[in-house]
Design a binder for these strands. Sequence first.
DNA 1: AGTAACATGTAACGCGTTACATGATTTG
DNA 2: CAAATCATGTAACGCGTTACATGTTACT
Lengths: 194, 194
Amino acid sequence: MDTRTLCLGALTSGPATGYAIKKHFEDTFGYFMEVSHSAIYPALAELLQEGLVTVSRVEQETRPDKKVYSLTPAGRVRFQRDLAASPGKHRVRSEFLVLMFFAQWLPPERLRAVVEAQREEFLRLRDAVDCWLREHGSDMPAGMRFTAGYGAAVIRAAIDYLDAHRDELLAAPDTAATASPVDEAASLGPLQPA
Amino acid sequence: MDTRTLCLGALTSGPATGYAIKKHFEDTFGYFMEVSHSAIYPALAELLQEGLVTVSRVEQETRPDKKVYSLTPAGRVRFQRDLAASPGKHRVRSEFLVLMFFAQWLPPERLRAVVEAQREEFLRLRDAVDCWLREHGSDMPAGMRFTAGYGAAVIRAAIDYLDAHRDELLAAPDTAATASPVDEAASLGPLQPA
DNA sequence: AGTAACATGTAACGCGTTACATGATTTG
DNA sequence: CAAATCATGTAACGCGTTACATGTTACT
């Protein structure tokens, strides 16, 4: 899923500037798809050249000038084609979980800090999604409500799991990080013995 | 979180070949951190040059020769340093959820297929994690059990959500994909009006 | 007979992120 | 007075993925 396709998708909700598209992404699917502004502007320029969007410059006195982009019929068709062509892969890339996986190699206070930080982040996300659902949920198409509800459900499960198993993890006695520097006896043996 | 750090981490469980490290990753945190073999081999070569791992060539008659890597004390220290230095960011990058977000622009049969495929994938993952917990869970350090349990909890929540809201999504009457090609009246208006 | 598993590498391409660059206004 | 918001871009760097490359054995 290309930044260009994402921009076309954002524009299906109406004309917008690059800045507004970025905001839109953050407010809606920010938690499952990050898009940086430095990827959006070049993408919009390419879409313009391909005739998939049009642009109109809007002068503002109190603010910098805007470039408001709109979807052309060709752009709408292209978006549907690209969307349908996407394999729809779902991937999680979590350094947080890698840290938890190797918890025993982390200093206990660092481990605690990481867990707490992630929990705070999840609470923040949960509240943001709940807020969005309350304020915009009823106006939005089924798909957008679905993803918001999905996010809320999964984040809640994560928070519950953290709360239920945090102590178990933090109280772990096998802190290799504070044990003797070289402790070969603690090895689990060779991986995948031949 | 660099592939090199991940390799060092894998070797904390004992000596292994590049191939075994890849397997180890797939079997344990494959669902939250993907590592391709073409990133592992160069990473191991770099670690060797830096003196963080050692290698011993093992000849096999029935199989291609192996290069078994082991962690040096310096490598163990470096791993702990790199691990503690990681910000521990947790990110989800899901084209699946983008597809759901834009469900109205997808042909209904395609939408259904994507949802079913993802559900199957989640079921597969859930079973794999459950199996791992049954078979290895009790031997493993708290951190590894924690991540497995976390995965199981979150995947279960996802499956439950899918089952509870799938029909709602698929039965959506507002399939813009099959509506008149250009339907400006359906627009939600400009994003972020100035 | 064909596929999966075992086993190790290289090369190029694409894409995203970070940093660089600028600048006015509003809010706390 | 500092920080956030609005607003748009460029350039380089790094990193991961895909494809290319090779070869044997065991299982279905």
